[in-house]
Design a protein around this nucleic acid. Structure first.
Lengths: 212, 212
DNA sequence: GCGTAACCTTACGTCGGAGTAGGTATGCTC
DNA sequence: GAGCATACCTACTCCGACGTAAGGTTACGC
């Protein structure tokens, strides 16, 4: 009608991705509650009822974001850390893929790590993903330990793995706030902390609290 | 009037603490936005206008919670890790105090770590506290390195410190969800991961990525 | 014993934002 | 080129929750 480019109609699959992009962006900045469906729709260049028609309620939309970003992240990591490599090589590749993902999808990371945590209905979803990672890391440690003829209680291994995953998440979060930082270098730093500590553990060196 | 114990009037200082207790509890479970002032007032056994009269708006109330819990935590850590002890002893005492605090104030921890993060106006407050911790840890590492005649770029040290703090937070969070777990033991585990890795670092052992 | 200040309440105004009703336009199929 | 499904919009309803107005009650000083 007017000279302005009256925007084209697009197939559902395309619009859904645009909506998810907008939702991830808005959720990452505002958080679940403070984000408004109006703003998301606006940002996607579409009207609100379309969002409801395609992605359902606000909660369902948030879950959809979580799924997309979570799946992408896990796929990136799993695709990099082939299970037939030596342990330190696997760890290194996994870390590199992880930090690479965070560097390339800062918004997605923020939704996963900063916003979904603590929001009652979504925390479980996230915990499941995190546990998957912890299990993998614990499995790697266990594998390496057995190869060395040693054995450690499963609980202990899991706690160590938990700490390593937590440290990585923390550095990733730092990375997300520092656009100038290099994901590769951050991965190397994390590898230093993780592997050197893990390596000592694998050798049987342990630290004990001084007697009270 | 009736036989029911018609609750006493209490001085402002006492009521304020009760309100803060209730607020921390509710905020920790629901998060900032989903928490309602009505529920907080209810939980404190008082009516809503009293909360507004004493602690101000919802945002101010949340900040008050953050301040109280944050100050308590930092005080607990600082009080335990005297600066004239050897580095590993300082680290150990600091960790023990930290995990002790989290074990004893799970709600407070949840507000600080799970809820304040990602909520635009409060994240900065938290980041400042966290940075204080990171600086202290980085300072400890630097001190130990110089004593050994070595030196490492400040940025590298800070990133390592950041990772260690992150790992601790992560384990603390795990602890908050596992009432049966022992804070002391968790601290020991963290010490193992942290100190052994740091120790290697202090000795100059480093890991390098394999050439592409 | 009486005024005054501090403690405390019920009952509202108001507003942002989730979710929907009902209708229009466009392209694809036959 | 008629019919139909799909893409899309404007304009509403309604509820929950922040924040407040206006007033009641207990203690304490003098």
């Amino acid at each position: 009608m007017s000279g302005l480019p009256t925007f084209k109609r697009l197939p559902r699959a395309v619009r859904e991705q645009q909506m998810l992009d907008a939702a991830v962006k808005v959720f990452s900045r505002r958080g679940f509650h403070a984000a408004s469906m109006d703003e998301i729709a606006d940002d996607a260049g579409i009207s609100k009822p379309m969002v409801y028609a395609y992605l359902g309620t606000k909660e369902e939309l948030f879950v959809a974001c979580l799924h997309r970003e979570g799946t992408r992240m896990m796929a990136a990591i799993a695709g990099a850390a082939a299970p037939d490599l030596p342990v330190d090589e696997r760890l290194w590749r996994g870390l590199r893929a992880f930090f690479g993902f965070v560097g390339a999808h800062r918004d997605g990371w923020a939704v996963l790590y900063r916003q979904a945590r603590g929001e009652r209905p979504f925390a479980a979803e996230l915990a499941a993903m995190r546990n998957q990672l912890v299990e993998v890391v614990a499995g790697m440690l266990d594998h390496a330990l057995r190869a060395g003829g040693r054995e450690v209680a499963a609980t202990d291994l899991e706690v160590v793995a938990y700490a390593l995953v937590g440290a990585s998440e923390s550095l990733a979060d730092w990375l997300a706030d520092h656009p100038e930082a290099d994901p590769e270098q951050t991965a190397t730093r994390m590898m230093n902390v993780a592997w050197l500590g893990a390596d000592q553990l694998l050798r049987g060196t342990t630290w004990h609290p001084p007697k009270a």
